[in-house]
Design a protein around this nucleic acid. Structure first.
Lengths: 223, 223
DNA sequence: CTGCGTCTGTTCAGTATTGAACATGCATTT
DNA sequence: AAATGCATGTTCAATACTGAACAGACGCAG
């Protein structure tokens, strides 16, 4: 019974802390909204910590098809794909709003992991991300689009939302367009589902989305 | 343009070698066809090397829905999910035929990685698996079922097949049922697609599937 | 060589999903 | 306040997909 936070993953504190070490010399980079930090095919051999803002990770095909793999926010580390050691990115990281990141090269990062004997933590982290992706695959194969959307909303609410009675209030908006690229369906479909959810009381509001944790869980339970 | 071997992943030689070290004391286990090596919820804290046979990794829900995440064969290492350190399995590994595996506990495995200073290799391996899963997600979100099937066939042929002219001949069969759980569609659908592929010359034969690498690639290219 | 079980082939009605088009709403700029 | 631009809402015909049911083929154990 997979219940992981599909594509709204938390970063383990240890990874975050690594970026604070004096021995590292992270470069602080400010990125405009809609600008990419790295793109498919780039030779970018670094990891990033988000100081503020929001970043989406997307894969795309030559034909222009896109899929949103994950969204990261302040405190998250992303760019682990460089740990493959191929030197090339196979996805694009793009700022969803004005964002500030700290950048550390793979070599420096790994050297610091070595110095602090933190390999097992890093391995734990990667194994956990692997499990999350695996759960995402399971969801795509076995659940219908509506359910997948509910799950994604719940995941984001739990990651980004502030408690508000039985609700979780999300400050950051996610466009229907983005949601469709996460869920794997079309934009009009998302609109329809969202309306249904609103009617059923699973979510509330338009500007800031407010999610009723329990009701969404209930919806996901029912066969 | 993701082109990884979706769900037919090769194991890096270094991982395989680790299982040969004298300092490790792997337990050799013989598993009957259709028996599971570990199952969802099990407390199984080990990695496995396949000596002979074939293993499928599947995730399942309480409702009985299943999804085939990966297939591993002789020489592959699986069970990395234990590296999360939760002590519990969140997927099931099941022998598709009589299979012999070598089992090494996580602690022993990591100790050996430490002794041989091979952390970076392990990290590379995990990062690569992560990228593969990511590609699988992309495929599920952006491609239709027929294309996904073509891709899966190609991946397996390249992993398991022996060259035979322009073809790759697969000794091991994969049932339509299994394929449907990989691709995320129904069994009758797979049958239909396979017939279409046969007509178009992408594949040949019934017993042993024979795949025309080039033709399948062509099919995948065409938008 | 017979029966059994498993896998493949086939059909189909019902449903879900796509993709394209157009309409509306809501901020931001001028 | 009008104009602009972007996100959401709405519709619909065409298509893809599901799930269930049944038939045939094949391999294997008795």
């Amino acid at each position: 019974m997979p219940t992981s936070d599909t594509r709204a993953e938390a970063t383990s504190p240890f990874l975050r802390e690594l970026f604070d070490r004096d021995s590292l010399s992270p470069v602080r980079v400010r990125v405009e909204a809609q600008r990419s930090i790295y793109a498919t095919g780039d030779e970018d051999d670094a990891l990033y910590l988000i100081e503020s803002g929001q970043v989406k990770l997307l894969m795309s095909s030559a034909a222009g098809q896109e899929c949103l793999v994950a969204i990261y926010t302040a405190g998250d580390v992303f760019g682990e794909s460089c740990l493959q050691g191929t030197g090339k990115r196979n996805e694009t990281a793009s700022a969803m709003q004005a964002t500030v990141v700290r950048r550390v090269s793979r070599r420096e990062f790994l050297a610091e992991v070595y110095r602090s004997n933190a390999y097992e933590s890093l391995i734990r982290h990667l194994a956990a991300r692997l499990a999350e992706r695996q759960t995402a695959i399971f969801d795509l194969v076995t659940m219908d689009a509506e359910r997948r959307l509910a799950k994604v909303l719940l995941a984001f609410a739990e990651k980004l939302g502030a408690p508000d009675g039985p609700y979780l209030r999300m400050q950051e908006r996610i466009s229907h367009e983005d949601l469709s690229q996460i869920v794997g369906t079309t934009r009009p479909r998302i609109t329809k589902f969202m309306q249904g959810f609103r009617k059923a009381g699973l979510i509330q509001g338009k500007r800031a989305i407010v999610v009723d944790r329990e009701k969404v869980r209930e919806f996901l339970e029912q066969e």
